[in-house]
Simulated assay, not measured.
Amino acid sequence: MGFSQLTFREAKLDDLDKIVFMLADDMLGQKRERYTQPLLESYIEAFQSIDADPNIELIVACDQEEAVGVLQLTMTPFLTHQGGWRALIEGVRTALTHRGKGIGTMLIKRAIQHASDRGCHMIQLTTDKQRPDARRFYEKLGFEATHDGMKLQLPHE
C-alpha cells in the first residue's frame, strides 16, 4: 500500500495543523481555506466545538503517528424517516503524499461502519460538481446521487 502502519483515531488538537493543511491542499480548498501560521483562531474554535460534541467525530488516518487522511462524521436525529438518525460525511481529504493508496476508501468504510453501529439508517454526503473523480469514487463505494443538493451562502464577518 505504500505506508508502514495505518491506524484510525479521533483527531487531537495536535493534528489540527495537518488537517487544515490537507483541507487547503487542493484546487477548491485553496479558494476557501486559509492555511497560515499560526492557524486562524476560527479553526481552533471549530475544532473545540467538534471535539465537545458526542455526535460529531473528526476521524484521522495515521501513517505511524502522522495524520495523512481526515473526514468529519456528524450524526443527527431527524423527525423524518420515523425519527431516525442519519450521518453526514464532510471534509474528506488525503495528504498529497498518500493519495491513491486506498486511505480514502478505508476512511469512508470506517465512517459507514461507525454510523451503522450508532444506529443511523442513512449516511449522506455532498461532492462539488467540479470534482467528477470524487463522484466516481463515492459511487464505487455504493453512494447514489438520488437528490439535488442546494446551498445558500450566508453573509458573515
Rank of each mutant, 00 (worst) to 15 (best):
Q130H: 10
R9F: 02
A145S: 08
F8E: 09
H147Y: 00
S49G: 08
F47C: 09
E10T: 11
L58W: 04
P155A: 14
R136M: 05
Q37R: 06
E41F: 05
D117Q: 14
D17T: 06
T76M: 04
S4I: 11
S116L: 08
F137M: 03
L152N: 04
V92C: 02
T80V: 09
I56G: 03
S116H: 10
H114T: 10
P155I: 14
D51Y: 10
Q48S: 10
K140M: 13
K12T: 14
Q130L: 15
A95R: 07
C120P: 04
A61T: 06
D51C: 05
A134F: 09
R9K: 12
R93A: 08
R86Q: 15
R118Y: 14
G149S: 13
K12L: 15
D25M: 06
Q153Y: 07
K18I: 08
A11G: 08
I59Q: 01
F47S: 08
L6I: 10
R136P: 03
C120F: 01
T105L: 04
E139N: 06
I89D: 15
P132F: 05
L40N: 09
D17K: 07
C62E: 05
L16C: 12
T80L: 03
H114G: 03
S116I: 04
R99D: 06
D26H: 07
V20E: 06
R86F: 11
N55H: 13
I108Y: 00
N55A: 09
L141M: 07
Q37K: 02
W85Q: 11
G91T: 04
L39T: 13
G91Q: 06
L73E: 06
T76S: 00
F137S: 12
K151A: 15
H81T: 09
L28M: 14
D148A: 11
A46P: 05
Y43N: 01
L39E: 11
H121F: 10
L16T: 13
S4R: 00
E139A: 06
T74L: 00
E33Y: 01
H81Q: 10
H147E: 10
M106Y: 02
A134Y: 09
M75T: 14
G69C: 12
G100M: 07
V60F: 05
M1R: 09
R86T: 14
V68I: 15
L28A: 09
E66W: 04
T80Q: 08
E65L: 08
I103S: 01
H114C: 04
K129N: 15
R86L: 10
L40T: 05
A11K: 02
L96N: 04
G119D: 06
I19L: 13
L71Q: 05
R131Y: 02
G104A: 13
F143E: 13
I89P: 15
A46D: 15
D17A: 05
Q124P: 00
K151C: 11
R118E: 13
G91V: 00
D53L: 01
A67Q: 01
P38Q: 00
Q64M: 06
H156K: 11
Q30L: 12
Q48M: 04
D25F: 02
M106Q: 15
D15Y: 02
A67E: 01
H147G: 02
T94V: 15
D53E: 07
M106C: 08
F137C: 11
M27L: 13
H81R: 11
H98R: 07
D26P: 01
M1Y: 10
S4W: 07
R34Y: 09
